[in-house]
Each structure stands twice: as C-alpha cells, then as structure tokens.
Design a binder for these strands. Structure first.
Lengths: 246, 246
DNA sequence: CGATACGTTGACGGAAATCAACCCCGGTGG
DNA sequence: CCACCGGGGTTGATTTCCGTCAACGTATCG
C-alpha cells in the first residue's frame, strides 16, 4: 500500500457534494490507510449480525443494503455508489442489523475503525461531516418510506430513476442523461417492494411513455420534466448543497 | 426557568437505555438550558422546509414525523415518545425535509442549537451518544422499510405493536403488557401505509386472534409470543443495549 | 343535546402478486 | 461449430390484498 491513497478521491468528491473541505481535511482523508479489493457481483460485504471492525468505501460499482423477511423475501434499503461508506454506522453501533453486498462487480476499500475514530478525533469537523453523511442517508430512508407506503409502482420507479440520475450526476457519472445501471429487474423489485414480474410491466410503461430507455446496463432519461413529475421528485432530501457544518 | 432542569430526566432515561452515562455527563445534561411548553394534539412542531435553530425534546405524549405525497396522502415515518429528540438531525442538516407534529397532547422542551453544539464539544462522548441515537433512528427507519415493502398488513401492524411495547418498556411506560396508545386508527394507517378502513379490519383480526386488546387509548398485548411471531419481530434493530461509545 | 370525530360494516373495484410458459442471449463444453 | 444450459426478460391468466365509497353506529364534549 502507498503512503497516499488516491482511492480516497471518490470519497472526497462525494463529501464535497454535501459540504466544503479544507486542504488539510482533504490531505487527512488522503492519508487514511485502507485496503482495496476488487469484488465480483453478488458478494457479501457485511452480514446481518456481524460485528465489523472496519468500514467499507465503495470506489466503483453498485452495492446494496438489504434485509430479508421471515419467508425469505428481500427488501433492498439503499443502493450505494462510488464515494459512499454504506456501513459508516458500524462506528457507533456494534451489531449490524442489515446485510450489505455488491450488486455489480465493485472496487471496495476497507478502512479499520480505529483509523476512522482517530480521524474524527483529530479533525472534529470531519467527524461532523461524517455525522452529516449518516443523517443524509437517514433522510433518504425517510423518502423511500414515503415512496414505499404512498406511491404507486410507476411513480415509485420514476422516483428511483430520478434519484439515481441526481446522485450519479453529483459524482460525475452521468453523460447526456445516461448512466450505467447494472441491476436486474428482480433486484429493482427488491428495492421497490414489488415482484419482478410487475417491475417488468412498469418498466415497459415508462418506456412506452418515452420517459426512459433501458438497454442492457444503460439507462437514459428521455424526459426529465415528466419523469420527475410522475415520480413526485424533489431533490431536497438528498441535501446536495455545501452546507456549513458546525 | 430553573438552573437545573429535571425535565431532562426522560432524556437521561432514554440515553441510558442505549448507552451508559457518567455522573458528570448526566450533570451536564441536567444543566442544559431548555424551554418547556405544553401542547395540544395535532400541533406542528417543525414544518418541512423550516430551518430550525432549536431541537425538540419530547417529555410526555406521542409525536410523529411525517411527509405527504403530491396528492396529499400522509406517511408517518416515525413515532416519538418521552425522551426522544425527533429533530436531532437539524443540528447538521440545515433544511428540514419532514414535518413533525404532536399526535396526542404533549409536553415538549426546546433546546437551542448552540447549547447542543456546546455540549457535544465540551463532552465529546455525549456528542457520540447523540450520533449513536441518530444512527439507531436510522436503523428503525430501515426496519420500517422492510415492513412497508415486504410484510402483509396484519404482520406489519403486529410488528408495530411489538415495537411500541418494547420501546415504551425501555422507558418504564408499560405495566402488565399495557400501555397508553393515544392514536387514531387513521393515524395508524398513515404509519402502516394503509387506509383507515383496512386498519380497522386488521385490528379486529388481531383482536379475534386474542393477540391484543385496544380500548380507548389503552393497548394490551395478550400473547407476546404469538404477536411477535406474526410480526416477525426481532428487537435487535432497536439497539437497546448499553453499548460502548467511542 | 346536538355536533363532530372516530369506529365499524358491506359492496365493489383496482393494483399488484402469483403461477406458468416462453423467449432471448451469452457462455460453456463436447 | 453447435448443442446445451441458465439467468434474465416478457407475456398472459388468475387470485389476493387492499383501497375506495358509502352508510351507519357510537362516544365525547361543548
């Protein structure tokens, strides 16, 4: 491993989408010791019940947090993209209550908890930024709850595509309203609380309305205005502004 | 206002259900300046879009966090009971993305943000406890997402009653498996993502199965084992253990 | 004592699940 | 080279759960 870790760049990019960082803070992030690993799709990163001693930082690819109900049906609770630390909460919560796994092939960096604690202690403002990051994730959970409870399938799916476009744009992964979307329709159903069959019908509905295209692993948003209107999308909950952090 | 604020007691009780506090930390909490107000049912505490300069601490009664979809249907995202600080996230997130209101008559304490920041700074461990508290709330959101997406109405409702019994027990508000439940069936529907009519049918189903009684504002759990089995309830996600906080 | 909000019940309709079959495509091995 | 295989996508038939609408009962409170 190098003394400097340019792998941290996606993280810095992400944090700068929600706050401002000083040069010293960026330098401290770049000094964070981490171990990078390439993973195939559908690999577990953290399992429900684990007591991890490290955090995961997604560098490339898509990961997901999920739970199963008693009869084995899966609910995906969040998707994670480059720059995300999906299990930041393990810093302060001992037993993990969700599973975390790759959805597509991923590059993942592992950071030992002591290094994170040390960083939060030596740079309290960074500690607050990480806190802010977990709060924004909670805000996304709340929006997803509204979608799960009170939106029809087509509105919910439209909302999800809007969220992906917005989040991926914030870290520079969108070109011409297109982005890589390496997810099966079944996995999308696990996120929307729908069956794979019904996801298929709704996708076709969105295609027929000329709102999106989805071929192989590429999604293109054809009509942002109408897609956002259908999904009742308001990006406030993503808190993508460089707010002050105490 | 007094120099000491025994109003903080519910908060201390709550925090002690998820961590251990030193005498000095408890004293610091007791010194927190706050303003106490009695409120009627269905009053707004924080509105979506606000930029609050204070936090709310529930001392008595039930409050709820909620959002509306475009056609005005409400989704309740969380219920708050004595000891909860429902808008702790406003410390690090400027614009609030949810509304917060009382469900029953409530006693609420208001704490100015600067006092909270000061407390987190002078007692970093308390800062971490508050962080932990927000992370536990996020964990509850995740469990609710699983319930919303993948549980039938009756399982979901059973789960909610189990959660209430467990949380209220942790702060000493349960006697003989009974607790005060000052919520209408319509409000319960807003939390479960169901219509009020269907809530009524499911409540009757739980009554017929001799799992609960619900008269006026009192709920009694008659058969914890079967209720927990029906709701697929596992309290891990509440993190009600006195874990270490770094 | 009447106003009003909440709870209860029945009839009906619609959204999504389930079941089952089939297609398409990329990969793999004979 | 092709035959086979398997995962994912697509489609149709049927069922189930829950929403909506409407009516009526009931309790609480001014």
């Amino acid at each position: 491993m190098d003394a400097l870790h340019p792998h941290t760049l996606p993280l810095i990019l992400k944090l700068e989408s929600i706050t401002t960082l000083s040069d010293e803070e960026k330098a401290a992030l770049l000094r964070l010791p981490m171990q990078v690993r390439s993973m195939r799709a559908d690999q577990d990163l953290v399992r429900e019940g684990d007591r991890p001693s490290q955090c995961c930082l997604i560098l490339d690819g898509f990961a997901a947090t999920y739970k199963f109900n008693a009869e084995g049906k899966r609910q995906i609770l969040a998707f994670h993209i480059a720059g995300d630390i999906p299990d930041l909460q393990s810093l302060h919560i001992e037993v993990v209550d969700t599973s975390l796994g790759t959805v597509s092939p991923c590059k993942v960096a592992f950071i030992q908890h002591p290094h994170m604690h040390e960083l939060c202690h030596s740079h309290p403002r960074l500690g607050n930024v990480f806190w802010r990051e977990t709060l924004i994730n909670a805000s996304i959970f709340r929006q997803w709850m509204l979608c799960l409870g009170r939106l029809s399938a087509s509105r919910h799916m439209a909302h999800l595509f809007c969220e992906f476009l917005t989040r991926l744009k914030a870290i520079g992964l969108v070109k011409d309203n297109s982005f890589t979307f390496p997810i099966t329709q079944g996995e999308l159903g696990d996120a929307l609380g729908l069956s794979g069959v019904h996801v298929n019908r709704v996708v076709q509905e969105l295609r027929e309305k000329n709102l999106i295209t989805w071929e192989r692993t590429t999604v293109t948003v054809l009509d942002w205005e109408r897609l956002a209107a259908l999904g009742e999308f308001d990006p406030t909950y993503l808190h993508l502004s460089r707010n002050r952090v105490a």
